[in-house]
Amino acid sequence: MGYHVKLEIFEGPFDLLLHLIEKAEVDIYSIPIAQITDQYLDYLERMKKVDLEVTSEFLIMAATLIKLKSAALLPKTEKEDNNGLQDDEDNALKENLIAKLVEYKYFKEIARILKEKEAEASLVYYRPYQEIHKRDVDLSNVLNNITLKQLWDSFKLVMEKSRELKEKEEIKLLKEEITIDQRMNEILNLLIKNKQKKVSFSQLFSLYRTKIQTIITFLALLELIRQNKVSAFQASGFGEIYLSLKLFQPKEDKNK
């Protein structure tokens, strides 16, 4: 290993920015934008070096900082109309950023207090210990007026049902064996038998229920269209798609 990089982890762009401001020992309201921006970008560089994902949130903040930095560096020329507007915009951007930082700092402080409280509270045990009582069911009266016989009958019923369910499941697990070629022939037959030589897309797929059947049908249909045996057309946007038989297939012969 070439070198060790010690990198603090931050919860997001605000967290990082606050850390830099605190390190610089300046007031949030008078951030030295140029300095903080450089440090911020430097940190993103180091994140990349240790393969930490620099998420888009960090990049958006970087863009904002760079904009503010460039605005601060530009000489204040005599106030022309455009410049004046630009200044206002940058000021609003800065004020917005500061307001967000102040708010974030507030919640970070609350989070810190919660962490302390959590640590204290985790050491106290109550009777009976329940981390979360999700179900507030009163179990004391559940078995009132129920005889042993009734319980036994219910139990038998449940067991029977579960046995039935199991049998059904076994039937469900039978492997469906159908190849795309078989399905292609089925679709062709369906179209040939149809008087109008035309079947709608939804009609075709309503014949098949399971996921695998639907997938195979779709693949078969794509293959038929590719081989120029079937054509698909749609009368209007989002309308029904109709599939019809191409009566002549000279192209396939040419290909051979």
Partner: peptide
Amino acid sequence: LSSAALETLA
């Protein structure tokens, strides 16, 4: 809880 969860909760 993680600091992320604590901040969200706050």
